[in-house]
């Protein structure tokens, strides 16, 4: 299936005028083209809806914000955009690998696992760098814990088994110490989202949790009462920020157009406003090597080296 971004359509139209090669073409198709140009909507309907998979690497329940971001992207891309959200990382990864979404905002962990099938588009800039950390948090009532190893026999909340910050990193730490999550904790559970890890720890349901540092910091701006009920025990090394990747469904031109729009967000007021709500500084080109450190963790945990 061939796609014609609006930009290309206009070029094609100009070309037809200049070359004067096919008057019949004009006579036959001009009304159709006019109709297509009459409004963005009609142009857009000519294309397939662009599907973007989202995972809980960002805040949840931001329906209004996503509507605005979608409107922004539609205006810039000139075609309809749909955000696809699922219960867990795994389902979005599945959709991405099967080409059922064009792009996906994933954690670095699944990206390095499937880097052959996925192409990097951009990575967000957080605090000016495409980097983030994993936080270990405990309820604020717990003022003794200093390290993950102190939480022996605790109830522990992971964000998602496909999350670097929310599972891979703490698991790696435990493996390094000669243990594992299953042996170290009395009970573990997944909340299928970073924000929910914070809620579970704040409520005391979990006595410790691993969470995306970016999500924790952003939530502390929006809901300081919630994050105030948790205490950050330790912060990990920096890892590559969850990237936006293109799947096999997106061709090179579409990827390029999407990349341009995302990179250009920082240059117009509406885009900056949206970035500000995301608590991001913009998007940047990144190389696959940025996620190598996650790849190392992944391999070491998978090989059961410890």
């Amino acid at each position: 299936m061939t796609m014609f971004p609006p930009g290309n359509m206009r070029i094609g139209w100009g070309y037809a005028l200049v070359t004067n090669r096919a008057r019949w073409f004009i006579g036959l198709f001009l009304p159709v083209v006019f109709c297509m140009l009459a409004g963005m909507q009609s142009v857009a309907t000519a294309d397939r809806t662009l599907r973007i998979g989202l995972t809980p690497v960002m805040l949840e329940d931001q329906v209004r914000f996503l509507d605005r971001w979608r409107g922004y992207l539609e205006k810039r891309l000139g075609r309809e955009v749909e955000f696809v959200r699922r219960n867990s990382y795994g389902e979005i990864i599945e959709l991405a690998l099967r080409g059922r979404v064009d792009f996906a905002w994933l954690c670095g962990f699944p990206y390095v696992q499937h880097r052959d099938a996925l192409n990097l588009v951009v990575a967000p800039l957080y605090d000016g760098e495409p980097l983030y950390q994993s936080y270990l948090i405990v309820p604020v009532s717990d003022d003794t814990t200093r390290h993950l190893l102190d939480l022996r026999g605790a109830i522990f909340a992971y964000a998602d088994p496909n999350s670097n910050s929310g599972w891979l990193y703490p698991e790696h730490v435990l493996r390094q110490a000669g243990s594992s999550g299953e042996r170290h904790f009395q009970r573990t559970f997944y909340t299928w989202g970073h924000q929910r890890v914070i809620e579970a720890v704040a409520a005391g349901l979990a006595e410790g949790g691993a969470v995306d540092g970016y999500v924790w910091e952003t939530l502390s701006r929006i809901e300081p009462n919630l994050t105030a009920r948790t205490r950050v025990v330790s912060r990990s090394d920096h890892f590559g920020f969850p990237p936006i990747v293109a799947t096999s469904a997106a061709d090179e031109a579409t990827s390029e157009a999407f990349r341009e729009v995302l990179l250009g967000m920082v240059e117009d007021p509406m885009g900056r406003e949206l970035l500000d709500e995301l608590n991001l500084d913009g998007f940047a080109h990144v190389e696959s090597s940025l996620y190598e450190s996650i790849g190392v963790l992944s391999r070491e945990v998978a090989e059961g080296r410890y």
């Binding site: 009970r187 559970f189 997944y190 909340t191 299928w192 929910r196 579970a200 409520a203 349901l205």
Partner: peptide, 12 residues
């Protein structure tokens, strides 16, 4: 499914 989070989310 041993899904502690969903059970708790339902209870609260």
């Amino acid at each position: 499914r041993d899904d502690l989070w969903t059970v708790w989310d339902t209870l609260r």
